[in-house]
Design a protein around this nucleic acid. Sequence first.
DNA 1: GATGAATGAGGATTCATTCAT
DNA 2: AATGAATGAATCCTCATTCAT
Lengths: 182, 182, 182, 182
Amino acid sequence: MTVFAKEGFYKTKVSGIAKAAGVADGTIYLYFKNKDDILRQFFSYLARHIFERFQEAIGQGDTAVEKLRNLINRHLQECQNDKDFTRVFQTESRQRRKLVKIEIEKISKTYLALLKQIIKQGQAEGTMRKEIPLDLSARLILSAVDGVVNNWVLGGCKYNMQTTTEPLVDLLVNGLGVGSQR
Amino acid sequence: MTVFAKEGFYKTKVSGIAKAAGVADGTIYLYFKNKDDILRQFFSYLARHIFERFQEAIGQGDTAVEKLRNLINRHLQECQNDKDFTRVFQTESRQRRKLVKIEIEKISKTYLALLKQIIKQGQAEGTMRKEIPLDLSARLILSAVDGVVNNWVLGGCKYNMQTTTEPLVDLLVNGLGVGSQR
Amino acid sequence: MTVFAKEGFYKTKVSGIAKAAGVADGTIYLYFKNKDDILRQFFSYLARHIFERFQEAIGQGDTAVEKLRNLINRHLQECQNDKDFTRVFQTESRQRRKLVKIEIEKISKTYLALLKQIIKQGQAEGTMRKEIPLDLSARLILSAVDGVVNNWVLGGCKYNMQTTTEPLVDLLVNGLGVGSQR
Amino acid sequence: MTVFAKEGFYKTKVSGIAKAAGVADGTIYLYFKNKDDILRQFFSYLARHIFERFQEAIGQGDTAVEKLRNLINRHLQECQNDKDFTRVFQTESRQRRKLVKIEIEKISKTYLALLKQIIKQGQAEGTMRKEIPLDLSARLILSAVDGVVNNWVLGGCKYNMQTTTEPLVDLLVNGLGVGSQR
DNA sequence: GATGAATGAGGATTCATTCAT
DNA sequence: AATGAATGAATCCTCATTCAT
């Protein structure tokens, strides 16, 4: 991932990955079918493991808003902890659509499911509006968080992204407008 | 752009572009320094022309919320009108970061400036909250809209994206929560 | 020739020649069949005109040694007067053997004929040795003069080559050894 | 070298070299940085190895004239033994001046040093004239030998060049003129 | 299992030449 | 006659992949 993160999938040479891993070029092919497969396995790994942690984060909140806050916070935290991973994901999930389509969709769907579940709980609690289509709300939240991460990546991963959690949740929950508008 | 949109920058052959353009391979090089330059000129063109249209859209609204709605609507509309353009932008602005860094930053900055100007007006009008950092609000809106577009692209550009405008603006302005929460 | 002299035949672009000549690329092809033909015509021109001047130089001497001195002097002078011409000749007569074979052979033969004629006269005068094969003597003189010129070209055409005439002729006529050796 | 010798550097295709060497195109690039480098390494090799043999030849003579004869003889012999090598050297040392400038100069300087050393010895012995500038004599001898080789190459490497040694040395040492002239 | 030299298909780019204006 | 935009054949070089050791 360190190597992919630096120059992107296409500019990365298999020999470069081998060198970074301290093995011979040929050795790569004992563990990966081909270059594409390296990326695919990365996405596959992500898809399998990331949600346990998200689930865990949600578990630590009671109300819907708390859960949302915890989820977003953990999301930003994880991204921050593994910059290379994040960078590769942000970059290649768009570029190599066909290759990782299945994994991306799986990740995306699971994430959206988590969000919908939170929103549903909020609606049941009476703390979240019922007029807005569930799908749209979920997608919009995902987009917003993804956008924040993307912005951070494009800016060179410099600032501490977790400071964004609080105002982000505030904005998502309360909106840009003043209450009287509604 | 049609060709880039289909397979991405790296999988696109210059000869493929030439063929699609109905000219000889060499002719490409009369107008572009090299393959990279084709992409760079595309982004450069975008940077120069897109904002006139956004500006125009904003001009057609009076209140801040109206302006926001018009901007977002026009944004989604333009993306919809040129799917190839949009797809290339969404994909390659991430992938070929270094190459188009300058153009991307220009586009991003100008867009954010438009948003901040709208939010400021809203705050002056008393229709938009002052507690949230201007920068964050603007970036979040951009991220959200970008996320919607990205989602549309990943989904194959199938549904009509403009139906999203209304609930999107509602969500951004009024938030996910019910009023009493604040 | 200025252009050929700078980078050699192969690195020279027809468009570069056109630019130097102040005409359009296509115009070149009104006067030359192709790129090769430009070089061929150059050698052809040389073959046709250079010997008049050499002949003239020889005409201004009486004894064989005088004639030899005048010929060599004129040879070095002409080379010095047109550095580009000389450089192209020195370089391309070797490189593009097949292309200019005929012209080179013509030039070479005529030059050798001049030299043989001089040596014959010297032998008749009793001032030049008869033991050495005429052919070899002539070729050796040509080689030596050519070598001097080549050396001058390789060194960047800096020094005044005509100062070489006198010692060169001395060496050729009297040899490196002291008289008693014979 | 066989391939370069046939058509010259520019007309030679890397794939042609690979084919002649019985390897794949890409293999060439495991040993040479690029096409230019093949030529450069050739000249570099020459520069490193040829002088041991020349030195050896000189060592087998006692008097200056003997040493000169042995050097020239060995020079012609080596050229004859490797026609392709010789042809490439004769051709490309002129054509690709910049590329092999350093190597050429090294070869040239070392050769001239050998010659000067011989002439000095001759002058000490009293068998070689002291009036002619050392530099010029050396350069002239080099030019003459080079000229003989060049002539042989241009003529298609047909005749036995070593028969030229004796009259060449005679001419260089005793000159073209009869003794009484001095 | 690990290696890394060898492979060769593939593609960007150049530039001599043409020809409609 | 002169132009120069357009052409497309030609070739260097890269790099994913293989396989004998």
